[in-house]
Amino acid sequence: MREAVQADLASANSQSATDDTIPPGDSGVWVFIIADMCAFALFFVLFAAGRIAQPEVYEASRQQLDGAIGLANTLILLTSGAFMAQAVRAARKGNRAATLSGLGLALGVGLLFGITKAFEWSAKLNQGIGLTTNEFFTYYFVFTGIHFLHFVVGIGVLFALIARVRKFDLDTTQQRWIESGGAYWHMVDLLWIVLFAMLYLMRAA
């Protein structure tokens, strides 16, 4: 029965998802994604080193963050990511309407992240907390800021994908584009997952 399900999936998925050697999307996009993730890994090292040197400053600063907004941001990106995953699966099945609605919802929900982020940052700035307040907030603003730039690019990518799906047939090239865009969007998502744990949830004893 399991085999039957797999065979079914294999026929439904035209290209790479069931290919055990070639990852989905354009291989070059993965170079971009890996390089980017490595840059963030360096950020994590900087943060960890800073936290070891000044644990009290980091904890006191962490308490000034609003964890509920951090959670809301996480849920927004996860939901948007789920719609993106749906769009990729629909594209592979050749279902244009479902692909478009998946991309549109990923975009619509994703945009909420921009609103909550603007709200969160402006609240901090209004409290007189800024880029140079202390090392924790330097990292907070820089890392979430660079992450936000990635988010903005991702929103651009989603717009571009929607335009392409409207204009062209859902052929294999198109699927590759959607898979590549999807991989990028999920990267934005997973980097936030780390940032959320690192900045908001590491409560000191």
């Binding site: 790479s16 998802a17 055990d20 050697t21 070639i22 990852p23 989905p24 990511g81 789920a82 993106m84 995953a85 990729v88 898979e179 999807g182 991989a183 999920h186 990267m187 998502d189 997973l190 997952i193 780390v194």
Partner: peptide, 16 residues
């Protein structure tokens, strides 16, 4: 969570 994102959303499997 990230492991799950790699595996399910990004669809990158160990054969890749």
């Amino acid at each position: 969570k990230i492991h799950l994102v790699f595996d399910q959303y990004m669809e990158v499997h160990w054969g890749h």
